[in-house]
């Protein structure tokens, strides 16, 4: 059984998965923020390596990528960052990365180094399930779990392919679009979770557009094993760039609030 499946079984509730861009707004503050998230109740971490052309991301995360790159974050430094995080507390760490960064590093070397740093799973934002084999066999070979996305417009047949290639969890995209905050929860997400439950036993984590504690609660009640919150958290960074104390406070309070609501369900 995989790390995630194990963890979700133990938790017996929906896991809280905050997302950060590594190095946003700079390496040290980023590390402080991730520690804050861990201390405030994160169960799993989803971390992204900044990329110059993040087409799956909306404006909030794109700006985070730009901040992190300006602060000189690189894939090699990001792996060292992950090592520091896992030394602080060994939570499962899922990586979100764009293919060109992995391709330039060398797919096998990158995955081996990520595993070595304490990583758990890898998701390549711009690899569809048709190209799963560019990453999956090499990931499995070094003991990483694989994560692929399922979207509301996917056929059952395609979802079946995702199920076959996934060893970690199914990253369930709640809507048709990019990452980013939304006022309401997409009306596509609950039917999609139900569909997935009918097709697979694998853990399901829901992301994209989950912005409020209420959204997280709804997704949890619909049966998700994990809820991934990215842009909402990254926005606390953007809104407090001149005050890192306030930044950490807001990130911590928000994660604590969502964690408590999920725990009560």
């Amino acid at each position: 059984m995989g790390h995630y499946q194990n963890l979700f079984n133990q938790l017996n509730r929906t896991a809280l998965v905050p997302f950060f861009v590594i190095g946003d707004p700079d390496e040290e503050t980023s590390f402080e923020l991730v520690k804050t998230a861990i201390d405030s109740g994160a169960d799993v971490l989803e971390l992204g390596i900044p990329f110059s052309d993040p087409v799956a991301d909306g404006p909030t995360i794109q700006k985070a990528d730009i901040r992190a790159m300006k602060a000189k974050m690189t894939p090699a430094k990001a792996l060292a960052f992950i090592k520091r995080v896992s030394d602080y507390k060994p939570l499962p760490i899922g990586l979100l990365v764009y293919y060109n960064l992995v391709f330039q590093y060398g797919v096998e070397a990158f995955l081996a180094d990520f595993k070595e740093a304490g990583g758990t799973s890898v998701l390549v934002a711009d690899l569809s399930i048709d190209d799963a084999d560019e990453i999956a066999p090499a990931a499995t070979a070094v003991g990483l779990e694989t994560v692929f996305m399922v979207t509301p417009n996917m056929t059952d047949e395609r979802i079946q392919k995702v199920v076959e290639k996934t060893t970690g969890f199914i990253y369930t995209v709640s809507l048709l679009g990019t990452t980013g905050e939304r006022t309401g929860l997409s009306d596509r997400v609950k039917p999609l979770i139900s569909r997935l439950k009918g097709l697979t036993q694998q853990p399901i984590c829901v992301g994209f557009g989950i912005s409020t504690a209420e959204h997280a609660k709804e997704v949890a009640q619909a049966g998700a094993d994990g809820v991934i919150i990215g842009s909402r958290i990254v926005k606390f960074i953007e809104d407090n760039l001149d005050d890192t104390t306030e930044m950490k406070k807001q990130v911590g309070e928000y994660i604590d609030q969502v964690a408590k609501i999920i725990a009560r369900l």
């Binding site: 087409v55 799956a56 293919y99 934002a125 711009d126 690899l127 569809s128 399930i129 048709d130 190209d131 692929f148 996305m149 399922v150 979207t151 417009n153 996917m154 056929t155 395609r158 995209v173 048709l176 679009g177």
Partner: peptide
């Protein structure tokens, strides 16, 4: 996708899953 869209090793369709149906 029905075809790979490759010219030798070049080409392909490196896009987020959500774009594949389109």
């Amino acid at each position: 996708m029905k075809h790979k869209g490759r010219y030798g090793t070049f080409g392909g369709f490196y896009v987020p899953e959500v774009l594949i149906p389109a």
